[in-house]
């Protein structure tokens, strides 16, 4: 009988953030259509390294396994992507797995991406509705507008675009392309637009759009092919317009519009 075809998986492991890094190698039995998640489950069933040493199962995040929840992003052969849609057939061997590096490590391939959700909060990425009561339909929208908005709304918050971005590092607070894209999405929605001013001001602050240096790696690693470059350009344009508008109107003392806003109780 012919021996099963196998291949090698090299995994960067760390039992906890303060523990030392070790690399472990595993020999995995090849099957067609195998993905990285199945390899990790193989290891959980038989946690023995290639050298024959017993070890612990690999810690990693995963949920939907069809590339729509965003959970299983990791570095696969050095490239940020989802482990579920990374098929062994298409990967150079030995396959190298590492955790994303731009987020705090939890254990092995697991990282903490809560900063992305925090930034969505900071940027007010929601439509401010009055309540959930039955008060009629939403604003009308042309099919063309929907076809622009929908691709932006498909962001799965995986963090690949932050991982690949040279400006996301220890020295900046750059929020990254995913968040900028969401700002564009909500600014374009007829009701979401009512918070546009606050979002743009946040975008002008620390970690905002000015930190982007147009490396445009983000768009190459987005698993959902979101037009991140367009989103960056559009927010850049909106921020500039907003800044110029501010400078023209409010740079020297109160203007008419300022007075009007004051009467209406709107905080500038």
């Amino acid at each position: 009988m012919m021996a099963d075809k196998t291949f090698i998986l090299r995994i960067k492991r760390q039992a906890a953030p303060q523990e030392r890094v070790v690399w472990e190698e595993f020999e995995i039995r090849y099957r067609p259509h195998l993905n990285i998640i199945t390899c990790l489950r193989d290891i959980a069933e038989k946690p023995i390294t290639r050298a024959g040493d017993g070890t612990t199962p690999i810690s990693y995040d995963a949920n939907c396994l069809e590339e729509i929840c965003g959970a299983c992003a990791m570095l696969i052969n050095g490239y940020p992507r989802q482990a579920c849609s990374a098929l062994v057939d298409n990967l150079e061997k030995p396959i190298r797995l590492e955790p994303l590096t731009k987020f705090p490590l939890i254990r092995d391939l697991q990282v903490d991406r809560s900063i992305m959700f925090e930034n969505l909060k900071r940027m007010k990425c929601w439509v401010p509705i009055d309540g959930t009561y039955a008060i009629g339909p939403g604003p009308r929208m042309s099919p063309e507008q929907q076809q622009i908005g929908y691709p932006m709304a498909r962001c799965i918050t995986c963090g690949n675009c932050l991982e690949i971005c040279p400006k996301v590092n220890d020295h900046t607070q750059f929020v990254g392309a995913a968040i900028i894209n969401q700002v564009r999405l909500f600014n374009m929605h007829p009701t979401g637009n009512m918070h546009a001013r606050e979002r743009l001001e946040a975008m002008m602050g620390p970690g905002g759009i000015q930190d982007c240096d147009n490396a445009m790696n983000c768009v190459k690693v987005c698993p959902k092919s979101i037009p991140l470059t367009e989103s960056n350009n559009e927010i850049n344009r909106q921020v500039l317009k907003h800044a110029v508008w501010d400078w023209l109107n409010f740079s020297e003392g109160p203007t008419e519009r300022d007075e009007e806003w004051k009467r209406l109780g709107i905080q500038k």
């Binding site: 439509v127 509705i129 039955a134 939403g138 929208m141 042309s142 929908y150 909500f186 979401g192």
Partner: peptide, 21 residues
Amino acid sequence: PAIIDLLDRMGVMFNRTPEGL
């Protein structure tokens, strides 16, 4: 039907007809 309206108000990018419905 009111649930759909609510989701629409929340900004769900539902597909549209030429009339915008």
